[in-house]
Design a protein around this nucleic acid. Structure first.
Lengths: 340, 340
DNA sequence: TTGAAAGCGCTAACAA
DNA sequence: TTGTTAGCGCTTTCAA
């Protein structure tokens, strides 16, 4: 049960290895008759070239690493699909590297990817650092970094940043058009960059888009459902209570929603809620969640496309893409009660 | 910026390639002094052996394919973590292959994995078929199949099956001990094997564990939240209405829960609900969902361990593992109302 | 129009 | 105790 090699094909078709190779890769002219014979033999023997051997000579593997904090995070789900979509279409295979928010584990993965000579690495994990990027760069491996809050890495990699301002601005305008004048924002954990950037975008949106509106930040969330419960308590204690709230992510929004209902609220009448992320669940709860959508599938595609560009045109300068967010209106927002 | 090779190390340390190789792999005795010198040079040059070159000679890549229907499916989340856990500990890297329930796409992935000479493949996708398995087998690649409903494949691969009977039996007993005598089961789509096996397990549980209980199957769910809504309607129309329901999966259970609440039910008093899967969300909703737990992390670990065993001991016979499920009691089940 | 041969970076049998 | 050398399966130059 030995592997069929190019030699077997050559021998069986009475030609040399190089002819077989050229037939396969269409890399020089081969007489039609011999070409057909070779092709037939390949079929007969069910021959498939070893990409290992190919990689050794071509110095390219057709593989990339996908460094990600947590596959289970609904945010990444469609991002991964987008990445994979482009990868598959370009005959690239992806190594899954789930850091679990652990830097050491991340470094282990990076080394393993370097050893395996991947052509590129997609950094989609907050649990990365410049050291990793440096090491990757020194090994001449291309990298694309998604929405990282750390120091400037544009010398080492291409980057993709998500612009929360556009979406949050739309959300604020939407709420204002519904008559809301006090809008709360249920933020994430204080130390977390990905959370801070969202809170900041909210404050920007208020001052830039609707300076007349009063924006109230409810801090210390945790970007999970329980955080939404707590945010609801905090919100309830405000006086006067805001009738509209934008959450730092959809899970927080769902937590708010469920806590509000448990407190006897009629939704959306008593409280307009806007999420952020547009996870699967968002459109499937009742009332369906109005939320700020991140085009995640497109982000994934873009990231992989950029990586391929970097790999294929080594001279190409690294780019910094910005992806905009936008509001998706569903049922969880409604007109503010009329104040008499 | 050329890659550092074993030759560079050999030259720089004034020894031969083989000595360097033997130092690295500890595969024959090397005098302490030269050993140290080689080690030092490796550090100085920051040398890392190319696993591509290694694979070419060893005929082993240290890679495996993870064929999965949908990374976003919460069921697979912890399974993946388990797989990865064992993989990383054994210096194995995983190729992510997300079939998206598409057989053609699956076959494309299989071919790509064969070309890349993976040592083994984990089939965790309902969208597979025997043809794939056959092709993999013919290429001398090991395979482990998780919980597949198709024909017997024990000649081609090791298998892991999930035993729903144990968990569902426990659930039925739990409900009976709470005083319930009519128990509904909200099933999945009719054609789907993974759904049928669960319904069947429910019927078995009734007849084997608690034949005195009346079991009512509500068919045609879709294993999603909306399916739970519909199941609630169906359930409401039953007369007398069952006061306890087991759902084919957690999402269905959540749908039931939310529909019941929208209908003004007081939960769990008016309806005891049991889920199946124990997804993350299950413990975080209110009331927290009593559910039948699948030890998913362990399933993942087991699958990868079995694959490694197959790879490392080619003589080993393929095994068929059975993993048991069990009940996790939370808040969504309570005593049946006393019938006067 | 095709073949021979060198070489990608490594391991391991055979020599010394 | 270590070095020489023949591959692993392929691509690609150079020659014919």
């Amino acid at each position: 049960m030995k592997r069929v090699t190019i030699n077997d094909v050559a021998l069986r078709s009475g030609v040399s290895k190089s002819t077989v190779s050229h037939v396969i890769n269409q890399t020089r002219f081969v007489e039609e008759q011999t070409r057909l014979k070779v092709l037939q033999t390949i079929k007969d023997l069910n021959y498939r070239p070893s990409s290992i051997a190919r990689s050794l000579v071509s110095q390219r593997t057709g593989t990339a690493g996908l460094l990600i904090s947590d596959v289970g995070n609904p945010f990444y789900h469609e991002v991964i699909l987008g990445v994979e979509d482009v990868a598959l279409a370009n005959d690239y295979s992806l190594f899954l590297c789930n850091t679990g928010y652990d830097l050491d584990r991340g470094m282990k993965f990076i080394h393993s990817l370097i050893d395996r000579s991947v052509d590129g690495i997609l950094f989609m994990s907050s649990s990365m650092n410049v050291e990793m990027l440096d090491e990757v760069y020194r090994n001449n491996i291309k990298a694309v970094v998604l929405d990282w809050g750390g120091t400037d890495v544009s010398q080492l990699a291409s980057t993709i940043t998500i612009d929360f301002n556009t979406g949050i601005c739309e959300a604020v305008q939407h709420l204002v058009s519904l008559g809301h004048t006090r809008i709360a924002f249920a933020g994430g954990p204080e130390g977390l960059w990905t959370a801070n950037i969202r809170t900041q975008a909210f404050l920007n949106a208020i001052s830039q888009c609707q300076p007349a509106v009063e924006g109230i930040v409810i801090p210390h969330g945790n970007l999970r459902i329980e955080g939404g419960y707590k945010a609801f308590d905090a919100l309830s204690n405000l006086s006067p209570r805001p009738q509209a709230v934008i959450a730092a992510n959809d899970l927080t929004a769902l937590g708010l929603m469920w806590a509000a209902r448990n407190a006897g609220f009629n939704l959306p009448r008593d409280l307009s809620i806007v999420g952020l992320d547009d996870i699967d669940l968002a459109s499937r709860v009742t009332p369906a969640l109005t939320t700020i959508t991140l085009p995640r599938f497109e982000i994934g595609r873009l990231a992989m496309q950029e990586l391929l560009a970097l790999i294929r045109e080594p001279e190409q300068t690294k780019s910094n893409h910005v992806v905009e967010t936008y509001l998706t209106v569903r049922e969880s927002t409604t007109a503010a009660p009329i104040t008499v």
